[in-house]
């Protein structure tokens, strides 16, 4: 076979697969979102945005992302640094820390529901310790703060490991000599982290943050399990439009709005953490 053609032939199956099962449905969704009574327009967008629940779900989604992502970033950096320094048992610790990754997000939501529920562990523990007289309902509209905290906690527990894995791999790529040079030239352990690890980890931080932020805007099952209607989020609204209100054009518009937000934040992360040409390892 012609050697110049071979690469294209080899990527053909994947390309066809992506076109049929990704690009085509995506085009359909987009078409649906922009379709209206009088041909193409922004009617569907106007409709979903003017819903009274839209601002609150947008606010909730952004709030949750703003709360969860920085905590996860800090935690995963700390954990990655610890794992990297370990000489023994490194793999075991890494496996244990990544267990939550293997659990579906709905199951994760249910696990935390079992803790925060009126008949859950937290209530029975507090009752047992005599902090409260009888079980109280924590996850309702009277305690929005607790609902938010429970969702954030569940999200942090569930999805920190995805960042951890990327950062551990990234730290492993930084040559040891840079740390030794920094040490000889006077950098304290904290300065070595701040002046060597962080800047050299930028490519991995980009990947981890982009992935995590996209996931944060797609948050759904954990919120559904713990917050229900008390804590509406964008993806929950999309689900409701599609399945409760049978408004698939509206759902398509919502999906595109979420996509737009994700792309916006992705570009922001790529811009902020860009590595100048010639400054790569």
């Amino acid at each position: 076979m012609n050697a110049r053609l071979l690469p294209y032939v080899l990527i053909l199956p994947v390309t066809v697969f992506l076109c049929v099962f990704f690009l085509y449905p995506f085009a359909l969704v987009a078409q649906q979102a922009f379709a209206g009574d009088g041909g193409f327009g922004l009617e569907n967008f106007r409709h979903v945005v003017s819903d009274w629940k839209f601002p609150i779900s947008l606010k909730n989604t952004l709030l949750l992302a703003a709360l969860v992502v920085p905590v996860q970033l800090a935690l995963s950096l700390l954990m990655a640094t610890m794992v990297t320094r370990m000489e023994k048992g490194r793999d075991l610790v890494l496996y244990i820390w990544t267990i939550p990754l293997g659990i579906s997000d709905l199951a994760a939501g249910l696990i935390w529901l079992a803790i925060f529920d009126q008949s859950g562990f937290l209530n029975s523990m507090m009752a047992g310790l005599g902090v409260i007289d009888r079980p109280v309902s924590l996850l309702n509209y009277q305690h929005p703060g607790i609902v938010l905290a429970a969702i954030a906690l569940a999200e942090i527990w569930r999805a920190t490991a995805i960042m951890l894995v990327i950062l551990v791999a990234g730290i492993g790529l930084i040559p040891k000599e840079y740390y030794e040079a920094a040490e000889v030239f006077g950098a304290s352990p904290w300065q070595r982290f701040y002046k060597i690890t962080l800047p050299l980890l930028r490519p991995s931080l980009q990947t981890a943050l982009v992935l995590r932020i996209i996931l944060a805007f797609e948050v759904f099952a954990v919120v559904a399990a713990l917050g229900g209607t008390v804590f509406p989020v964008l993806m929950g609204q999309t689900y409701e439009l599609q399945f409760a209100l049978n408004n698939s054009a509206g759902a398509a518009a919502m999906a595109l709005i979420i996509l737009g937000i994700s792309i916006g934040f992705t570009l922001l992360v790529l811009r902020v953490l860009r590595v100048p040409k010639g400054a790569r390892i």
Binding site: Y178, E180, A181, V184
Partner: peptide, 15 residues
């Protein structure tokens, strides 16, 4: 009170 020159230079790539 030392300074060192490393075999692979260890010139920081991000600076």
């Amino acid at each position: 009170g030392i300074a060192m020159v490393f075999q692979n230079y260890a010139v920081f790539p991000h600076l």
